[in-house]
Amino acid sequence: MSAHLALDTAETSTDMSKAPEIINPPRLGRWIGVILVGTVMAWIVYQALTNPGFQWDVVGRYLLDVGVLKGVAMTLQLTAIVMIVGLLIGIVVAVMRMSGDPLLIFCAHAFVWFFRGTPVLVQLVFWYNLAALFPAIEIGIPFGGPKFFEIPATVAISSFTAALLGLGLNEGAYMAEIIRAGLMSVDNGQSEASKALGHKPWHTFWVVVLPQAMKAIVPPTGNQVIGMLKYTSIASVVALYELMHSVELIYSRNFEIVPLLIVAALWYLFLVSILSVIQYFIEKHYSKGWQGQDDRGA
């Protein structure tokens, strides 16, 4: 019996052609798909090349226009600052939410509930018109106490600060939920082990728990950054000179609406592509210890 088996294996290992071959079934559906997709793409390219409405010469003229570049710079700047503000607020609110302290949990809940529950556009316009509610921004003891600092609201709230507050607070609420999900994904044993070694709470959070949570936090955060880059275009309603507003100003003068929208779209597409590459490398960094072959018990 065993000799017979041994002979069998010897045969198969020496001559592969004797083993029955397994072939794939014909993929008719895929060929039909190729034809359909090919037709649609050919039509798009044909239109792009022949439709005079695209006005590629106008697109080319404005793609690197100084006004547009200034808009790009502002879009990048606003995205970066809003995301940093959102990330910091998000960490603080997520930690509050998971602290176990009833007052902190209530505050975190209230924050997320309010800023996630109202549209960004409303918040943005609200902050921009804050002067209507509070003519002066004061720091001091409320209900008639002394004032330490006072500034007119119209001075304090520019287009930029309105955009920063509106987008940043909203982003903070969303980031808080993303970070909370990340922190919850880390096994409780990790913080216990860190505590048992004698690490201080901040060390346990920053060195042990957060880096592990990053694996779950980075992908949705990348999504948020990419979303925010395009979402900053909403700040054009409070006349902030970002990419969208910069092309609006140009086409309101020369009425070349479509080519200038293409200019904006190309820039957004370009910036998002770069962000995607950056996200890839950050994800790779935080998956340290999880990648590679499993050479268990070697």
Binding site: D187, G189, E192, A193, A196, G198, P211, Q212, W290
Partner: peptide, 19 residues
């Protein structure tokens, strides 16, 4: 945390830091 530093602990699930 200062008191815990002098007491070693080993867990059922090892709890090594995977990163």
């Amino acid at each position: 945390s200062r008191q815990r530093a002098d007491i070693g602990m080993v867990f059922q699930n090892f709890n090594l830091f995977p990163h």
